[in-house]
Design a binder for these strands. Structure first.
Lengths: 213, 213
DNA sequence: GCAATTTTCAAATGATTGTTTGAAATACTT
DNA sequence: AAGTATTTCAAACAATCATTTGAAAATTGC
């Protein structure tokens, strides 16, 4: 092993490059130059560009989903102990870990990586989402269905998708940037508030009582 | 003029291709083959790939923003006549025209085109949004600020961006598709409800009374 | 310290991309 | 109908991209 940190350097630069330009827009040559490694290093260590992307996603998604499920289980346990399950607690378990990750040292680039990840459309990314993210999403959907028994499953799925989307999507999108000339990230409370509000309306529409906090 | 519909055919196939694969992912060769025109036709009629994309966006965005501003002006006029401006009316003026367009004959592809448009990240798309969409967005922001005088401008911008995003983004995103194996588009009411709910929470947070309908 | 394995390196490969070219065909003008 | 302008066409161009190659270097195991 000439240098033990080659893989790590590729991953670190990969997060930044994929987060800045997306999967398709990322040029391996640029990534390689930024990382200061050889042309062939990516293919040697990760097999292919897809392999590198998969490795990066799996790594950080692991951290994210672990924390998310911890918080979800805590919310479910609390609900089992003292009454009903609040939508806000479920949503917080979804949203907060992302902000924890993003606000941790070096997490900004990771945040942007996820941001761009959920905006991609290639079949490869689609497959990857199903593999890596969907199992956790399914658990959240189940919890939300329990909290909102009167709301049709499809509506719950949609509102969940929007919440996860707005969470990870942050403020990197074309619209907010164009309006404010800012890339400032949204706050945890802003996202949570907006989405809880959305779920409240859903609940109201289908006749359930609102789970206010 | 050998064939008067060459431009039209290119545009029609362009909407579909860009909507399916995004700007970067669209291969001019594929587009050309689908349209049944010659290799050089795109560059001859539109100058470049960017020129084609710009032409398509400008065309459909024109239809969209015209209708949006009509509805916004109607809401403002109604508010001037009979009291206060309701957030829901402003948001409806933003959301409904998109659904009108998408549900019109051949509009499905246009909907997907916009969907992918707002998810793109290249500087070119960023510029295009500023040119084509931002003037209208600014008018909506101004109206929302008037309806929500106690909410900081930045929060209004963010909530607006989320609303426009969820509207155009529809259900094409990775998350919803993975959860439901469906590409079924969200309904107007679902989007509007969710976003009005989000704005309600915003209003409540900053101490304003809620503009319920 | 020697052999085997792993990692690095510079260069080349093969495929794909948007775009250009110059001639042929078609439409328009008078 | 002749001449001009416009549009189409097949082919090639030039640039970019991920990936492969095979030898050199470094590390590890014994």
């Amino acid at each position: 092993m000439a240098r033990t940190d080659t893989k790590k350097r590729i991953i670190e630069c990969g997060v930044r490059q994929f987060g800045a330009h997306g999967y398709r827009g990322t040029r391996l040559r640029e990534l390689i130059e930024a990382a200061g490694v050889n042309q062939a290093a990516v293919n040697y260590h990760f097999g292919s560009k897809e392999g590198l992307y998969r490795a990066i996603l799996q790594g950080y998604a692991g951290l994210l989903t672990k924390r998310r499920l911890e918080m979800l289980d805590a919310a479910l346990a609390a609900a089992a102990a003292n009454g009903r399950l609040r939508v806000e607690d479920v949503l917080r378990a979804l949203v907060e870990p992302f902000f924890e990750l993003r606000d941790s040292p070096g997490g900004e680039a990771v945040g942007r990586f996820f941001e761009v990840f959920v905006a991609e459309r290639t079949p490869f990314i689609q497959t990857l989402y199903r593999e890596v993210m969907k199992p956790t999403a399914d658990r959240f959907i189940a919890a939300l269905e329990r909290a909102l028994p009167e709301v049709p499953r499809d509506e719950v799925c949609r509102a969940y998708a929007w919440t996860e989307h707005l969470t990870t999507h942050g403020s990197g999108d074309v619209i907010y940037q164009a309006l404010t000339n800012s890339t400032a990230a949204a706050s945890l409370e802003a996202v949570l508030d907006f989405c809880v509000g959305g779920f409240e309306r859903l609940e109201r529409r289908y006749g359930g009582q609102v789970s206010r906090n």
